[in-house]
C-alpha cells in the first residue's frame, strides 16, 4: 500500500516535471542568449496543443497521426517562432526589459484571441491515451503514454545537453550567453544565432504542447497557467541554466505530488512556498549566476 502510493506519486511527479522542464528550459535559453524575457512562451505551448488537435482532426485520431503531429507541430511552432523573431522580437533586442514588455503582452493577446477565433471556445481532444495501452508494475497500473512523455523529455534533455556542451553551435550559444559583446567581436553571426535559439525554444514549447494534448486536451487559457508555472521553475532553477531548469522542474513536481498527499487543501500554495524558500536562501536560484 505505502509502496504503491509512493510509486504512483513518483511517476506523476515526473510527468508534471516533464512539461515544466520543456517550457522552462526554452524560457531560460532565450533569456540566456537573447536577453529577452519571453512572456509569450505559453502562447506557443497552446498553439502546439491546438495545432496537434487540428492535425488529428483533419487526418484521423490514430497513433500514426499523433506521431506525425509530434514531428510536424514542433517544427511549425519553431518556424513561427523564427518568423516572429525576425519581424518583431529582434527589433527589441538591446532595449531594456521594459521596452520588450509591450510587444510581448501584445503577442499574448493576439495569439490568445486568434486561437479563440480559429478553434472556438470548447476544448479540443486528441483521444490517443487509450491507444497506448497501460503498463503494470507489481500492482501499479499506468497509462503507457505517460512513460512516452517522460522518455521524450529525457531525449530532449540529453539532446540539449549534447547540443550545448558538445557542438560548435553550443559553444557559440554559451559564448553569447556569457559575453555577448565579446562573442560578436569574435565574428559570431549573432543575428542568425539568436533566431535559431528563439526557434529552438519555441519549438520545445510546441513539443510540450503536443505531448500535453492527449492528457489535458487543447484549451484557451492554458497559455497563462503554463507560463506562470514555467517562470517559477526558472526562478527556482536559476536563469540561463538548462540543468537548473531540469532539477527545479523535478523538485516542483515532487513537492506538488507529495504535498497534496499530506495537505490536500493547500494544493496551489506548495509551489510558491518552495519558491519563496529557495529565494530566501539563494536569491538567484539554485544554479543562477546572478
Amino acid at each position: 500500500m505505502a509502496f504503491s502510493v509512493i510509486g504512483l506519486q513518483l511517476v506523476s511527479a515526473l510527468v508534471s516535471a516533464t512539461f515544466l522542464f520543456l517550457m522552462a528550459s526554452g524560457l531560460s535559453l532565450i533569456f540566456g542568449v537573447c536577453r529577452v524575457l519571453n512572456l509569450a512562451h505559453g502562447s506557443f505551448f497552446m498553439l502546439g496543443a491546438f495545432l496537434a488537435y487540428s492535425v488529428t482532426q483533419v487526418v484521423s485520431s490514430s497513433l500514426e497521426t499523433f506521431w506525425l503531429a509530434l514531428l510536424l507541430v514542433p517544427l511549425a511552432t519553431a518556424l513561427l517562432g523564427a518568423l516572429l523573431e525576425i519581424v518583431l522580437i529582434r527589433r527589441f533586442y538591446g532595449a531594456n526589459l521594459l521596452v520588450q514588455l509591450m510587444p510581448m503582452v501584445a503577442l499574448i493577446y493576439i495569439i490568445s484571441d486568434f486561437s479563440r477565433f480559429v478553434w472556438g471556445v470548447s476544448p479540443g481532444s486528441v483521444p490517443v491515451l487509450g491507444l497506448f495501452g497501460t503498463v503494470s508494475i507489481l500492482d501499479l497500473t499506468f497509462p503507457a503514454y505517460y512513460f512516452v512523455v517522460v522518455l521524450a523529455s529525457m531525449v530532449v534533455a540529453a539532446g540539449l545537453w549534447f547540443l550545448i556542451t558538445r557542438t560548435r553551435w553550443g559553444i557559440l550559444v554559451r559564448a553569447a550567453s556569457q559575453d555577448r559583446e565579446m562573442s560578436a567581436a569574435c565574428g559570431v553571426n549573432q543575428t542568425r544565432l539568436f533566431t535559431m535559439v528563439y526557434a529552438l525554444a519555441t519549438g520545445l514549447a510546441g513539443l510540450a504542447g503536443v505531448l500535453a494534448v492527449p492528457i489535458s486536451g487543447a484549451s484557451l487559457e492554458m497559455d497563462m497557467t503554463t507560463v506562470v508555472n514555467a517562470f517559477v521553475v526558472v526562478v527556482v532553477g536559476g536563469m540561463g541554466s538548462v540543468l537548473g531548469s531540469m532539477l527545479a522542474a523535478i523538485l516542483i513536481g515532487l513537492v506538488n505530488a507529495f504535498g497534496i498527499l499530506v495537505l490536500p487543501q493547500f494544493e496551489m500554495t506548495f509551489v510558491y512556498a518552495l519558491m519563496a524558500l529557495v529565494l530566501i536562501v539563494r536569491p538567484t536560484g539554485l544554479f543562477g549566476r546572478g
Partner: peptide, 9 residues
C-alpha cells in the same frame, strides 16, 4: 483582445 493586442503592438 486581438484588437487591443494590435493597438499595443
Amino acid at each position: 483582445l486581438f484588437f487591443l493586442g494590435v493597438v499595443v503592438l
